[in-house]
Design a protein around this nucleic acid. Sequence first.
DNA 1: AATTATTATATCCAAAAAGGTATAAAATAT
DNA 2: ATATTTTATACCTTTTTGGATATAATAATT
Lengths: 77, 77
Amino acid sequence: MRENLTDLSKHIKLKRKQNKLTQPELALKAGVGLRFVRDLEQGKSTLRMDKVNDVLRLFGETLGPVPMDRDKLITNE
Amino acid sequence: MRENLTDLSKHIKLKRKQNKLTQPELALKAGVGLRFVRDLEQGKSTLRMDKVNDVLRLFGETLGPVPMDRDKLITNE
DNA sequence: AATTATTATATCCAAAAAGGTATAAAATAT
DNA sequence: ATATTTTATACCTTTTTGGATATAATAATT
């Protein structure tokens, strides 16, 4: 699959660890498939927003617009 | 379709207006379909993250985890 | 080192997203 | 009020996600 870890994927993995959960446990609690949790932590970019939110909700979070890192900003045109 | 407007959908619409763009123009610049922009602004929750990011990028933003509104928090089950 | 637990990769497939396009509705302008 | 621009809804097709499951690889524990 070869996906790069992202800020989001690392964030999720960290939160999961902090809550002492395994991937199967997280999947169960969030009501998503194990496959999904794995894709998420591997940084897959094409995931469905609602599923990601199902997971983030466990941590009191949700997906929202945040400013991009300046080093990734594309200047006009 | 009957989708509820969300914080994100309202945010996108506002940003688009601020940048004086129509939906077709935004779709073109973002490289997504017009249908997608419409679903996005109508608050469809099952959209793909990468496509949403294609749009947000135009505004120097990206999807990231943000704290949930406290009134939506589910207390520890 | 060997066993066990956890995580990563792969295949199959039903369900659904996204694009294109057409038309209706709503908003804006003249 | 009418015309024009913009936005919303609906249908159809193609592509892809996500779940389930099996197996391989890695990490952790004893």
